[in-house]
Structures are given as structure tokens and as C-alpha cells.
Amino acid sequence: MKGNTDVPNTEPEWEPFSHALAAAGALNRSLVPLRQDREATVRVLGEALQTFETRDEALLLLAALGTDITEALVSPLLRTALRIRDTLRVRQLLGRLPHSAAEAAIPPAVRKLLDEASDSDDYRRMAELLDHLGLDAALHDLCIRARDSIDEEMREVAEDFDGE
């Protein structure tokens, strides 16, 4: 962008940025009622995370809302993180949580998730997440579970993430 920074640029490349700024303003205004009705917001966003058509928008909204909403949605976010295309975005969202909140909420939700349906890829995604968040005790526990598996690929997860 060229020209005086006090006056909006009228060059063609300015138009997409101008539209994005307007959309960001509209998003910011639309978040007010979501913040005011936390319970409904958690419920609706939890439902939106389960649907392919609304998942991207739900993740975008979560990034714009406070971490209390993210913390309330740890379990559905972990299920979302099992989809490789969403793993990084969920990791970033959960990384915004205060460490004490992450330490309290994420390890039990990971254990429950891996109890329900787990293969070596699920273990690897959760190990990567726990490692990223610095939840070392939970990562160690996951590695113990993986090491005890009859599945060779699952035992490989333990070898990759736990030095014992």
C-alpha cells in the first residue's frame, strides 16, 4: 500500500483489506451477545464443531471469544483435533488457555477420548497436543498406555514421545 496512512487508500489492493476490516468490525459487534449468554454460546458452538459445514466458523468464533468458552468445549475440541486438517487450529485454541486450566481440563478429556475410540493416529495427535501444551505428566501417562498396547504403531508413539 502506498500513500498517506491517514487517508484510506483507494488503490485496488486496498479493497480486500477494507472489506476485511468491515467484516472484523461486524464480527466484533456480533460477539457481544455471545459473551453475554455463555451457556447458549457453549451449547451452540459445541454443536457447530460436530458438523463439517459449520466447524470452520465455530473455530474462528472460538478464537475471537474468551478462553472460558474454549475451556468449556475441551472435549469436542479434542475430537475435532483428531481430524488432521483441524489439528493445528485446535492446538492453537487450547494453547491460549492458562496452563492451570489446561492442566485441569485437558488430561482427563484426553483419557476419556482415548478410552472411547483410539488408534495409533489418535494417540499420536493427542501426544503431539500434550507435548505442545507442556502437559508432561499427562503425556507420560499417555505413553505408558501406548507402551502397553499390542499395537506396534501405538508402542511407537510411546517411543517417540517418552524417553524411558
Rank of each mutant, 00 (worst) to 15 (best):
P76W: 05
R85I: 12
L97K: 00
V74D: 07
G25E: 14
P16S: 14
K112Q: 09
A48R: 12
V42P: 02
V110Y: 04
L61F: 07
I84A: 15
A137K: 15
H99R: 08
T10H: 15
R43F: 12
A48K: 04
D115K: 11
S120F: 09
L135Q: 01
T5R: 13
V157C: 02
A20E: 15
Q50G: 08
I144P: 01
D56Y: 02
G3K: 02
E152G: 08
L113C: 03
A81Y: 03
A104E: 11
H140T: 11
A63W: 06
G134T: 07
A40F: 01
E39I: 11
V74C: 07
T10P: 10
R43S: 14
L139I: 09
L93S: 07
F17M: 14
P76S: 00
L93W: 01
A158V: 00
A48C: 09
A26L: 15
R91S: 08
G46P: 12
L133W: 12
A127Y: 07
E39H: 06
H140C: 03
A102E: 01
A26M: 14
P76C: 04
G134D: 05
V42W: 00
W14G: 10
R155M: 07
N9Y: 15
L114I: 10
T41R: 07
L45G: 12
L65M: 04
S120Q: 07
L93G: 03
D68F: 04
A64W: 00
C143N: 10
A146M: 05
R79I: 02
